[in-house]
Design a protein around this nucleic acid. Structure first.
Lengths: 228, 228
DNA sequence: GCGATGCTTCGGTTACGATCGAACTATGAA
DNA sequence: TTCATAGTTCGATCGTAACCGAAGCATCGC
């Protein structure tokens, strides 16, 4: 007994439905205000305020004041990974939400996971990068190849810039809807950003889903073909 | 809101201190009875019984009856990974236990993590295997090399046998005390088993720590040297 | 200055769940 | 059979934490 770090504290933090909803919403990567988070949690602002204070004290959230707004984000990528891994686990056990909801298909197709692409399209992209020899997959680890680096430069992504950050370039992240890996890390972020910049896709207002335009869809599927 | 799987349920399950203690104890890999688990949770058997029922209903535990005893284990390796990853996260945030306790140093040196070696010795072993070229590390993924396969055969581990199981051979598992990776997967299990079989080390009765004998210590350090 | 908006703090209510004593079932030992 | 041990179920208690209304700050626009 009393062995090791205290998982009960963070378990309890995540264990409240309102807080869990807020955290899941923040996994979308966007900074949200206390009022918005109260909305996603289905509670009043007063209650949300105390919840947010607890989450911040627990080190799960960071906030920055901007005028009279208070923007909350996940404290760092480790929190996002924890949440996503718990989602993957929960999905595997059948701990699904009561009503699947109309937005579910869109989420399964393409959604944002902290700052990179997830869902069917996210998994497909990684598969294609591996098949084309741009990324080496060893066990559950990923590494960019020289071919990959030059291929990416051709679509406007300069890997050298990304390397300067302390964050790992490639990281595999388990997708809860597909139950397979998609690409995270700074490269995952850069790829999604480029899709948005090119106008291939747009983020939706209140949801984590990512909407591809018909043209963007075509381009994406051409760039990341699935092998027959 | 209402997007994705329900993490609040499992968060709440882990969020109770008594349940968290039981889960942490079961991460030791041993099957424990309800009474033993009541002990580690610091509660009466009645209370433990209801907790265990909840954990089982939530898919975190499995039980098997044996005579008048009821043995509980973690449902599968995924649960162990979840618990360990939460421990790693908690340790990183400073969510440590109130009193470090006398057993802490032993735990940091060598302990069992589900079924493989963790702690200083676990990290050291993986480092050494990578340095000697037995294991390839790419990103955070691990893969056994041909050299590794033959080296392991020399110390009595037949990798061919391990491959037949559906479980991955090599897996990296983040160590909460060292904050670095150690070796999990079926190979990690096989290595620890061999140390125990050879008499180099023994499991302790009530704790997760692993005790190396003086001779076992010598052999282990010789087999897995650290590069200067 | 003023009101409006965003958010926090305070106080009091409420509900849920952890807890344990006691009674009950099941298995094993004598 | 009887007694002992392991565990569950029941019932009642109790504490904590989630919750919201109301009041209090802070910041913006005017």
């Amino acid at each position: 007994m009393k062995e090791g770090p205290d998982i009960a504290q963070i378990g309890a933090l995540i264990g409240d439905p309102a807080r869990a909803n807020m955290l899941a919403a923040l996994t979308g990567g966007r900074a949200l205000t206390a009022t918005e988070l109260a909305g996603v949690g289905g509670i009043t602002v007063q209650t949300a305020s105390t919840h947010l204070a607890k989450l911040e004290a627990g080190g799960l959230l960071a906030q920055r004041k901007q005028g009279r707004h208070r923007y909350f984000t996940l404290a760092d990528e480790a929190v996002a990974r924890l949440i996503e891994s718990m989602m993957g686990f929960a999905a595997g056990r059948g701990h699904l939400r009561h009503q699947p909801g109309p937005k579910e298909p869109a989420l399964r197709k393409a959604r944002i996971c902290y700052d990179h692409l997830a869902g069917d399209y996210g998994v497909r992209m990684l598969d294609s990068l591996i098949a084309s020899g741009s990324i080496d997959a060893v066990g559950d680890g990923l590494a960019l190849t020289e071919k990959g680096e030059s291929d990416l430069k051709r679509i406007g992504i300069n890997v050298g810039d990304l390397r300067s950050s302390r964050r790992p370039l490639c990281r595999s992240c388990l997708d809860w809807s597909e139950r397979r890996a998609h690409l995270a890390g700074s490269l995952g972020k850069a790829l999604l950003s480029s899709f948005l910049d090119k106008g291939w896709a747009r983020r939706t207002a209140e949801s984590r889903s990512i909407n591809f335009s018909p043209e963007g869809d075509r381009q994406f599927l051409k760039l990341f073909p699935v092998d027959p």
